[in-house]
């Protein structure tokens, strides 16, 4: 279990996260929702160990994460980030095998290679295993990174998988597929914590939704409990209607068209710019 207690994070006197307590249990997909700047990514980076909390504790499998040694932690926790900063011409296969780095000393075993093949197959990248990563499209690159992260944990169903906006660069098919992979892994025992912007996807694939607002935990519950028009307006300032889907019995959110204040588009002002040209 991932257990976070009274976690706070400050940077230069500004409190980005305030007293967050939450849990992710084995076999559960938890979606983290919130507006830009609500603290979702910061929370993720605290759990990944990239940032150090100002106060509070993060326990993974009943042990504080700062008490783990790097390799053991890498075998029980992996994270897919939003941004990737590769500038060398690595091939897809070379990158995916890096996910196995915590598992071997100098050269990968046949088991490592088998796991790499399996994760590449499930992410649909087997066909370009030998291509250079930098020559791929954004969505394809994202799937390569996912395959790498999955290989890191593939043989440890007690592990925690962190996904920071995993579907933002993907087409419709792979958006569904990636979340379905996450859900299937959770059914094997994995803990999955995923940041999403698409509330309907969260409704469809998450077992539980946690909503953040201004660095605080605002809501925590099943999709049916938390996804209503009032909560969505509170978190995102958008108006919506909620239908309950007949098949899944889960909420489906229909958004109303947003109207931006017309004073921003004053034709007289724009005309003066045109005239000046």
């Amino acid at each position: 279990m991932l257990r976070i207690e009274q976690l706070s994070y400050e940077i230069k006197g500004h409190r980005v996260l305030k007293d967050i307590s939450l849990q992710v249990r084995k076999g559960e997909v938890v979606a983290l929702l919130g507006a830009n700047g609500a603290g979702k990514s910061t929370l993720m980076r605290l759990i990944s160990g990239e940032l150090k909390p100002t106060s509070g504790s993060i326990m993974l499998l009943d042990k504080r994460i700062d008490k783990y040694d790097g390799k053991t932690l890498a075998r029980s926790r992996a994270m897919l980030s939003q941004q990737h900063a590769i500038n060398m011409a690595y091939t897809v296969k070379e990158l995916v095998i890096m996910g196995r780095y915590p598992h071997f000393q100098s050269s990968p075993s046949t088991r490592d290679w088998k796991i790499v093949e399996e994760t590449m197959a499930i992410c649909g990248i087997t066909d370009f295993a030998d291509r250079v990563y930098l020559s791929l499209s954004g969505g394809e690159q994202q799937r390569v990174q996912l395959a790498r992260v999955l290989s890191q944990l593939w043989d440890n169903p007690d592990a925690l998988l962190l996904l920071d906006e995993p579907i933002s660069a993907l087409d419709l098919h792979y958006q569904q597929k990636v979340l379905s992979i996450a859900k299937n892994l959770s059914r094997l025992g994995f803990m999955v914590l995923v940041i999403l912007h698409d509330v309907n996807m969260a409704s469809l694939y998450a077992d539980r939704i946690i909503m953040l607002k201004n660095g605080r935990k605002w809501l925590d519950g099943t999709p049916n409990e938390v996804l209503n028009s009032k909560n969505i307006y509170t978190i995102f300032s958008v108006e919506s209607l909620i239908n309950i889907d007949n098949h899944s019995l889960k909420p489906h959110i229909i958004f109303k068209e947003m109207r931006v204040d017309p004073q921003f588009f004053n034709i007289q002002t724009i005309k003066t710019y045109v005239d000046k040209k």
């Binding site: 990944s48 390799k71 994270m79 990737h84 900063a85 690595y90 070379e94 890096m98 996910g99 780095y101």
Partner: peptide, 16 residues
């Protein structure tokens, strides 16, 4: 090699 992914990613792979 892990550094090529970015220093944060290298740390996530258990690299000191």
């Amino acid at each position: 090699n892990a550094f090529a992914l970015g220093e944060d990613q290298a740390a996530l792979l258990g690299i000191n």
